[in-house]
Design a protein around this nucleic acid. Sequence first.
DNA 1: GAAAATGGCAACCATATGATTGCGTATTGC
DNA 2: GCAATACGCAATCATATGGTTGCCATTTTC
Lengths: 116, 116
Amino acid sequence: MSSPERQVRPADPAPIFAALGDRTRLSLLTRLSDGRARSISTLSADARMTRQAVTKHLRVLESAGLVSSIRVGRESRFAYRPEPVIEARSYLDRVSAQWDDALGRLRTFVEGPGPI
Amino acid sequence: MSSPERQVRPADPAPIFAALGDRTRLSLLTRLSDGRARSISTLSADARMTRQAVTKHLRVLESAGLVSSIRVGRESRFAYRPEPVIEARSYLDRVSAQWDDALGRLRTFVEGPGPI
DNA sequence: GAAAATGGCAACCATATGATTGCGTATTGC
DNA sequence: GCAATACGCAATCATATGGTTGCCATTTTC
């Protein structure tokens, strides 16, 4: 018999996806996903927007748990956090799995003439 | 030697994530991912918002390619489209892979005192 | 053919979002 | 110590977003 594993509360991934839903933030996250922590200055060096704009994006990522930050001297270093990405992935996996499941793909638009 | 496969244009997944970044839309997509096409009325039946609000969300999903719609008589049927989900997943996979790669996780915040 | 069901369109509203600018403060380099 | 660097805070702005309401048109149903 299985041990009484407590369900790890699904926690809706919408905020994570929302944080990912921006080109600039995706780019920042991609850079940081190499595991190297970087300062705001470094991250805004080649951006076509102000440092403040980049800072805001980083704070959005931080709110979603996608990055963490620590102050080191006069700079703020941001680092990639893998957990939310895992969570988002597993959500997409579940959606894909449900789609792949059974006869799913055969039912599309083939419900007959009646209301559904 | 490999055939000259044309790169399937990366097409930034930000708009897909943005479309996924809403509770209501995630819920709609989850329902539709069983492969059954449904009308707007059906989809808004148990929603705590107006039919119009649900319609707007469905159009957002449609703009991101996550669902398609066809008019059947007096109703509009929406069906799940798997491609964007695959694309989003593969993006997250690449991010995760880069993270898993090499010594990535060891570099976090361990860059020494100098500016980075 | 009249009523019900389905949904499109448009106006409208409050709030969120993405970005800028200006300025103040703390830290570092020389 | 002073200038440069790095950053935070706040105001401001335009536009996007999420939601509502009202009304009209098309289909079905009986």
